[in-house]
Computed example of a mutant assay.
Amino acid sequence: MTPLADPLAGLRDWHAPSPVGWWPPAPGWWLLAALGLALLGWGAWAWRRHRRRVAPR
């Protein structure tokens, strides 16, 4: 009679997945950055236009 082998002896230890990198960002972040740059450009244009209209002549 042979002794029963341990069925769990052949299993390997678990491991964690590799961490997710921060670059490249998801497409939503690219859209948010483009929107932010567009709003910043529009704000600079509007501010400059306003300054030219109210400037003393």
Rank of each mutant, 00 (worst) to 15 (best):
M1F: 12
T2K: 13
T2P: 08
P3T: 14
L4R: 11
L4V: 12
L4Y: 05
A5S: 12
D6T: 00
P7V: 01
P7Y: 02
P7T: 01
P7D: 01
P7L: 00
G10L: 05
G10C: 04
G10T: 04
G10R: 08
G10D: 06
L11C: 09
L11N: 07
R12F: 13
R12Y: 12
R12N: 14
D13L: 10
W14F: 15
W14K: 15
W14T: 12
H15T: 14
H15V: 15
H15F: 15
A16W: 08
A16M: 08
S18W: 14
S18Q: 14
S18N: 13
S18K: 15
P19Y: 01
V20T: 14
V20A: 13
V20Q: 10
G21N: 12
G21L: 03
W22L: 15
W22P: 04
W23S: 11
P24H: 05
P24A: 00
P24V: 04
P24I: 07
P24C: 08
P25F: 12
P25S: 12
P25R: 09
A26F: 10
A26P: 02
A26I: 13
P27E: 02
P27I: 02
P27Q: 08
W29P: 02
W29N: 13
L31H: 10
L32Y: 09
L32C: 14
L32R: 13
A33G: 04
A33H: 07
A34V: 10
A34W: 01
A34L: 08
A34E: 07
L35V: 09
L35G: 11
L35A: 15
L35I: 11
L35R: 09
G36E: 04
L37P: 03
L37E: 02
L37N: 00
L37G: 06
L37Q: 07
A38C: 13
A38M: 03
A38K: 02
A38D: 00
L39I: 11
L39Y: 00
L39Q: 07
L39F: 03
L39M: 11
L40N: 07
G41E: 09
G41M: 05
G41A: 06
G41R: 02
W42K: 03
W42G: 05
W42P: 05
A44T: 05
A44P: 00
W45N: 05
A46T: 02
A46Y: 03
W47E: 08
W47M: 13
W47I: 05
W47S: 06
W47P: 00
R48P: 00
R48H: 14
R48M: 11
R48A: 13
R49V: 06
R49W: 14
H50L: 06
H50S: 10
H50D: 10
H50C: 07
R51H: 04
R51P: 00
R51Y: 10
R51W: 08
R52I: 07
R53F: 02
V54K: 06
V54C: 05
V54F: 07
A55F: 04
A55H: 11
A55D: 06
P56N: 11
P56V: 06
P56Y: 09
R57S: 10
R57T: 11
